[in-house]
Design a protein around this nucleic acid. Structure first.
Length: 204
DNA sequence: CGACCGATCGTCT
DNA sequence: GACGATCGGTCGA
């Protein structure tokens, strides 16, 4: 039920509750415009709650060249290279220097699918095109170079077309791949659209 | 379906 | 030197 696309403004990202932002990002549309438009609806997110969260890259205030972008302005972009080959896309929230981020883990593709196929080298669309944080970044052309950039720009942004998932359409689980975060691995910080085939399937 | 494995490399110890 | 906020493939039940 797409209406007019409205780009999210700074106020959406500049909030103190990163968990709430992660939940509300479900249903929003991530858009990249590098010559051609590619976009997808967000169907899976994870919150990373800063210095008190062992799973966060900013745990105990850790601050290096690599993770500097998580300390940026609300609405900034943090890209993280994982396993030497996957570029993971994060949304920076809360005030500058408060390192709260939301990892986008899956999209339902909307616009520019033929471009996504070119970027990923896939012959035809399948659910793996934008399922999983590494795959969706490749499909939308996002990489490390975009770290530190802003979602208030015209190249990369998140938009609202009015779609809202109801409470009973959303499932909350533990985060994926953070077993080493000990007790913080138990936090229920992952939000998924129930039954959506693009959601990364692994145990919670 | 679940368990496991190799690829691959920038970053930090 | 070791280690990932992953992925796609294989193998066995």
């Amino acid at each position: 039920m797409p209406g007019t696309l409205k780009k999210l403004g700074e106020a959406f990202y500049d909030r103190s509750d990163v968990i709430k932002v992660a939940r509300e990002l479900l249903g929003k549309i991530l858009v990249t415009h590098f010559g051609v438009y590619t976009s997808g609806r967000i169907v899976e997110t994870e919150a990373y709650a800063g210095i008190g969260d062992r799973a966060s890259h900013a745990f105990r205030g850790r601050r290096t060249n690599r993770n500097e972008a998580v300390y940026g302005e609300p609405g900034d972009i943090y890209m993280y290279i994982c396993y030497g080959m996957h570029h993971l896309f994060n949304v920076v929230t809360n005030k500058k220097d408060i390192p709260h981020v939301v990892l986008i883990r899956a999209l339902e593709p909307l616009e520019g699918i033929s471009t996504m196929l070119k970027r990923t080298g896939k012959p035809e669309p399948d659910y793996s095109l934008t399922r999983g944080p590494g795959n969706l970044s490749r499909a939308l052309g996002l990489n490390k170079r975009h770290s530190g950039g802003s979602l208030l720009s015209d190249e990369i942004y998140i938009a609202d077309d009015g779609l809202k998932y109801k409470k009973d359409e959303i499932l909350v689980t533990k985060r994926i791949g953070v077993e080493s975060a000990r007790e913080d691995a138990e936090r229920l910080y992952r939000f998924i659209v129930k039954g959506n085939p693009y959601v990364s399937s692994r145990k919670s």
